[in-house]
C-alpha cells in the first residue's frame, strides 16, 4: 500500500497541488483555462491550510481504522483492498453526511447541491497522484509503507503520514503520528 507523506518544512503554501487536483480530478475539461469557467466550479480534494509557522496541505489520510468507513450506511465508501485508499462510489452516495460528521480531519467535503461527497482517493485510477507530481518543492512524497518508514526514521523534516489508529480511538491516536511538534526542522 502506498501513501502520501507530507513534509511540512518544504510546503510553501503555494496551492499548486490544490489547483492541479481540481483541474485534473474534478473539472470536465481537464484544462486550467476552461476549468475556471466551469459551473459548478471544480473543487480540489486537498486543502492547504495555514498553521503555526507554515502550511498544512491536508487531504484524506486514508486512516487504517477509518471512522468514515464505519459511518457510511450505503456502502458508498469502501476500500478495494485491505489498507488500500478509502474511495467513494458516487453512484451509491446519497448525501446522508454521516461521513462528514465523523471525519476528524474535516477531509470529506459535502456537495450540498449534488447530495454527494468529494474526497481524495489517492488518484487510484491514475498512474500517480496528481498533487504529488504538481508540487514544485517536493513537499508531497508518494511512497510505500516501507520507504515511508525509512524517510520518517531519518527525521529530516516535519512529516505527516497516513494515520494508523485503532477503531475506538479513531483517528485521535493517529494524531501522535502527526509529528508536527516533534520532528527537528533541520
Amino acid at each position: 500500500m502506498k501513501e502520501i507523506l507530507v513534509n511540512l518544512d518544504k510546503c510553501l503554501g503555494c496551492k499548486t497541488c490544490e489547483l492541479r487536483c481540481a483541474v485534473e480530478r474534478s473539472s470536465k475539461s481537464k484544462s486550467l483555462y476552461s476549468a475556471v469557467r466551469e459551473n459548478p466550479k471544480p473543487l480540489p480534494r486537498i486543502d492547504v491550510q495555514s498553521i503555526k509557522d507554515g502550511y498544512l496541505p491536508l487531504q484524506c489520510r486514508h486512516c487504517e481504522e477509518a471512522p468514515c468507513l464505519n459511518a457510511c450506511p450505503t456502502g458508498a465508501l469502501f476500500r478495494k483492498e485491505d489498507n488500500g485508499p478509502v474511495i467513494v462510489d458516487e453512484n451509491l452516495c446519497v448525501g446522508c453526511w454521516m461521513c462528514v460528521m465523523t471525519c476528524p480531519f474535516g477531509a470529506i467535503t459535502p456537495l450540498l447541491e449534488r447530495k454527494k461527497i468529494i474526497k481524495c482517493d489517492l488518484c487510484v485510477n491514475m498512474e500517480r497522484p496528481v498533487c504529488v507530481d504538481a508540487c514544485p518543492t517536493g513537499a508531497l512524497v508518494y511512497c510505500d509503507t516501507q520507504s515511508a518508514k525509512l524517510i520518517l526514521e531519518e527525521k529530516k523534516g516535519n512529516f505527516i503520514q497516513k494515520v494508523f489508529s485503532d477503531t475506538s480511538e479513531g483517528i485521535r491516536r493517529g494524531l501522535l503520528k502527526f509529528d508536527y511538534k516533534q520532528g527537528s526542522s533541520s
Binding site: D47, Q49, S50, I51, Y55, L56, L58, P67, C99, V100, M101, T102, C103, P104, F105, G106, A107, I108, E169, G170, I171, R172
Partner: peptide
Amino acid sequence: SGIIAGLINSQKKLIDVDRLNFLSDHLCYG
C-alpha cells in the same frame, strides 16, 4: 463538523476555547 466530533470523542483538554475558530464558516484542521 467531524473535527468537533473528534474533539468530543477524545475529550481532549483545550486551552482558550474561545480563541479556537469553532464558529468559523471555514472551520479547518489547520
